[in-house]
Amino acid sequence: MRIVLYRLLAVVLPLALLEILCRNQIIKPLTLPAPSRIVLGLWAMIENGTFNAAIVKTLTNVALAFGLSVVVGIAAGAALHRARLLRTLLEPLFATYYAIPIYAFYPLFLIVFGLGDAPQVLIGFMLAVVSMIVSTLSGLDSLPPVLAKTPRVFQLGPVETIRRVTLPYAAPYLFTGVKLAIAYAFIGVIGAEFIMSSTGLGYEIRFAYDNLDNNVMYPLILLILLISVTVNMSLDRWDRALQARRGRV
């Protein structure tokens, strides 16, 4: 309980300090408007629905990239788990994958696919899918050999085996992958929108910045921060609840 209080303080105190600094013009409004004004601006924006189209566009693309990466990641992970040789071959790629600046491929995607939604979704997908593959692999690796034999003893079919044994056992690992995948899908899609696109939250922030329109830019940045932090924290809480339940069994 005390920890929650301290956490609250750790958020509120810096914000209060910023508010005071901004109100007294020590931080110029051209650099940063007062936090309270940003919040009010965001509220008005949501009420007016000015940016609803952009919000929906971004969230749809993030959902697409995320959904694709989960489905493809689990399927590819399961397939690689069987294909030993291909796995040894790809292992070094997975190890260095996140060191590669994926955004550097964005220009190529723009040329190949044009300025539609595909390049953004593809960047989000490319960032997210590998963490899903790696998590699936480590989930399947952790399956004790005895749990591979038991379903055979009970003569379960492949579908039943996956549903009753493999999936429940690998679930915590898959969940880690899902958490990472959703964060990466956000980072990829919004980053790509920011670099070059014609719609979405990233694009709107870039547009507002180019026009020095702080009254639009800061509320939108706040919105992105709120969305990604909320999603991340609620998944984290869910994960912890699941693990606690597991620990008790």
Partner: peptide
């Protein structure tokens, strides 16, 4: 997990 590019 924040898309830091938004802070740019």
């Amino acid at each position: 997990s924040i898309p830091k590019i938004a802070l740019y």
